[in-house]
Design a protein around this nucleic acid. Structure first.
Lengths: 210, 210
DNA sequence: AACACGATGACCGACCGCCGGTCAATCAAA
DNA sequence: TTTGATTGACCGGCGGTCGGTCATCGTGTT
């Protein structure tokens, strides 16, 4: 077959892009390296020239998804007017959408996809926690919140909420979810020592995510 | 080969036990159905007669691990004397050991067996959260803690702590871990509205888990 | 009471398609 | 001529299937 040589950087990005599309539509586990290679019209060896395993390709894909969505999130924070709480509200409302590249695939909700999903969450989490921490710090300056550990507090809340509402991690029942979402405002307000009602908007956001 | 027929219930338990041993020593991903079948001296079809997929076998194994360890935990709670806080202390100190069947395998820490690890965590979490909730409720009665949502509060804290300290979920750095563990006492005390210092014992426990 | 006889379903293991991964050969570009 | 990007036939092993075997046992017959 006629051989097409490309700039390695471009080729690498092509592979990541193709794999990303497939992983998001078919899930990581159900996408074979053959699928990736065929969707690009290249040989299997070429992929393995750039990534030494399927798992390494997964890491590259998740990092790509997360880092692509970060600038948009940062812009959102700086451009949303109002108090730290207003910015937090906007950030929370937008997070899930951006974290998964604009589309929440049904496949991502299936337990089959754990490998990619957990990794994606943890990676997104790692990059986004500092943003939340900054807003919490701002809220403390405004006298709205009170905490000695803004970053750890952000991590604490984000981790809990993610773990307890993500049915790709565990098939929680509708009762579990409803019960938790109802408690979240109070729990978060307690953790941040924020005025009662500050986070009353949380249930609405989770309602819209169904 | 000579055919050995056993009570289906016994056979099923044998398979789960064998799979459990292998999953814990070699990890789920690195254990093949051939391994399981050979360790029992039975045919592959027999396993598939009882479990329709490898994943279904995993579910059975995790449920077995968790439900086996539950009675011991419950006994611990009722037998530990003192306040709700004392009981909580004992419970937290013992949790990890029991949850993974007495042995924390190095393999369980490797990202390779996410599938089993996350499922194990979530299953254990589901069964154990009510226990913690009961202690929190008790603490509220004693006037030590204050919360409207004992169960959700327990879930919140457990989920956060688990997610943020488990390096099988994500390869957190030593800095991340140290930073978080240091913040945990204050965060948990805030969440439960407990007196400062109540949970000062937390860092010690995490130190011993290395 | 002893036996013969289906029916049941636990059990077997050869077999399948496919998967992730390898590598010697090839060829475009510098 | 050298370099390294690219190829694709090939491999061992995986999860899973399936036609078939045989131990067990309830039931009807003697």
């Amino acid at each position: 077959m006629t051989r097409i040589v490309k700039d390695p950087e471009k080729r690498r990005q092509e592979i990541v892009a193709a794999a990303k599309a497939l992983f998001q539509t078919k899930s990581y586990e159900h996408t074979s390296m053959n699928d990736v290679m065929q969707s690009l019209g290249i040989a299997k060896g070429t992929i393995y020239h750039y990534f030494k395993s399927k798992e390494e390709l997964l890491v590259a894909v998740t990092e790509s998804i997360v880092s692509d969505s970060l600038p948009a999130i940062q812009r959102l924070v700086t451009e949303t007017p109002g108090s730290a709480l207003d910015k937090l509200h906007a950030l929370i409302a937008s997070t899930h959408l951006t974290a998964e590249d604009g589309i929440i695939q049904e496949h991502l909700r299936q337990p089959a996809n754990q490998g990619m999903h957990t990794r994606l969450l943890a990676t997104a989490f790692r990059e986004q926690a500092p943003l939340y921490a900054e807003l919490i710090r701002l809220g403390c300056d405004e006298g709205l919140f009170h905490t000695e550990y803004p970053l750890e507090c952000a991590e604490f809340i984000l981790a809990a909420v993610q773990f307890l509402t993500d049915i790709a991690i565990y098939p929680w029942t509708a009762e579990d979810l409803g019960r938790r979402v109802q408690a979240f405002p109070t729990l978060v307000e307690t953790q941040l020592q924020a005025p009662p009602g500050s986070f009353a908007f949380l249930p609405d956001i989770f309602e819209n995510r169904r």
